[in-house]
């Protein structure tokens, strides 16, 4: 039995800790121990499903020892985690799995397999998103409409580029200690071919030996490249980047062994990470903070550090 400890705070920052034990491809059955989980966000939830799927590929379904915290269990229930987890894990513990609080969920964990699923997401989330973004996060109405556009484009990336299904989930939180504001968190994940393979046929030759997960992410996020000849392709992720930057948010994309991010001044994540433990597909996280003042106009956001270094993304720099 291969033990995979699940971090107590399960989010983007701790995702790699959960991925690390998978490196090496052991044949034994996996046990994901989530008993000590005290906090989880949409990125963490989707990450847990993704890790479980990879850990169970071509072998017995992994075991998931559920969190002991009733609050976490209740939240997982409200987010629809157990519906998705039932086909991935053999679940243990967590006797009380009822949602004992009224649901405040923005978008439950939703599988994305087709364009029809994308329509379903937009149909379900638009009115809720408008209400929450305008009333709780202080976004002007016309900008709140763009939230559904972001979700639509992110989910379409799965359908059009991943060659595999994925999930989306989103929720608002009060980041009182970390940011002093409410935030909306969006997570979108798939276990498909990843950016490097998706772009390889069109762009790898130009990069030669430098072609890697990191250069593929830079090509997509900073330069808007895709695997299609169509000039209309690639603008979804570019426009998402522009919107998130204008709203002072954070956008990160992990694929393979690299993670690239547009990092706002309130976060200390590096703009580019390489040599991460390998993981299939793409994992996208977005954090949109509540407005404290009118939005700045330029893309990239005031004080934002971009993976591209410059606001126009013309001069990539790397950490590690």
């Amino acid at each position: 039995m291969k033990l995979i400890p699940v971090p107590a705070s399960l989010e983007e920052r701790s995702f790699d800790q959960m991925v690390q034990p998978l490196d090496g491809g052991a044949e034994e059955r996996a046990l994901l121990d989530a008993r000590r989980v005290r906090w989880v966000d949409p990125y963490g939830m989707l990450g847990l499903l993704a890790v479980g799927t990879v850990a169970g590929a071509d072998r017995e379904r992994p075991l998931l020892q559920l969190p002991e915290s009733p609050d976490v269990l209740s939240y997982l229930t409200r987010m629809g985690f157990f519906e998705q987890a039932a086909g991935i894990f053999e679940l243990h513990g967590g006797a009380k799995r009822t949602a004992d609080a009224p649901s405040d969920v923005l978008l439950e964990i939703t599988p994305i397999r087709s364009h029809g699923d994308v329509h379903d997401v937009v149909d379900r989330v638009n009115e809720r998103a408008l209400a929450i973004l305008t009333r709780q996060l202080g976004y002007p109405l016309q900008e709140a409409f763009q939230f559904s556009v972001i979700l639509s484009e992110l989910c379409q990336n799965i359908v059009e580029h991943a060659d595999a299904p994925g999930w989306v989930a989103t929720q608002t939180y009060n980041w009182a200690r970390r940011l002093g504001r409410k935030v909306a968190v969006i997570a979108v994940m798939d276990l498909g071919i990843g950016f490097k393979r998706s772009l390889a046929s069109m762009h790898a030759a130009r990069f030669g030996d430098r072609w890697s997960d990191a250069t593929a992410l830079e090509a997509a996020l900073i330069h808007g490249l895709t695997r299609f000849h169509d000039p209309g392709r690639g603008q979804g992720i570019q426009q998402i980047r522009k919107l998130v930057g204008r709203w002072g948010g954070k956008l990160s994309i992990r694929s393979g062994t690299a993670r690239i991010a547009d990092v706002p001044s309130w976060d200390d994540a590096p703009p580019l990470e390489q040599q991460l433990p390998p993981f299939p597909g793409a994992q996208i996280g977005i954090v949109l903070p509540a407005r404290t003042q009118p939005a700045a106009a330029p893309a990239g956001g005031a004080g934002a550090r971009s993976a591209g270094g410059q606001k126009d993304g013309s001069s990539p720099r790397r950490r590690r």
Partner: peptide
């Protein structure tokens, strides 16, 4: 809602 892909 009008997204970029549909508008394109």
């Amino acid at each position: 809602v009008l997204d970029y892909s549909c508008a394109d």
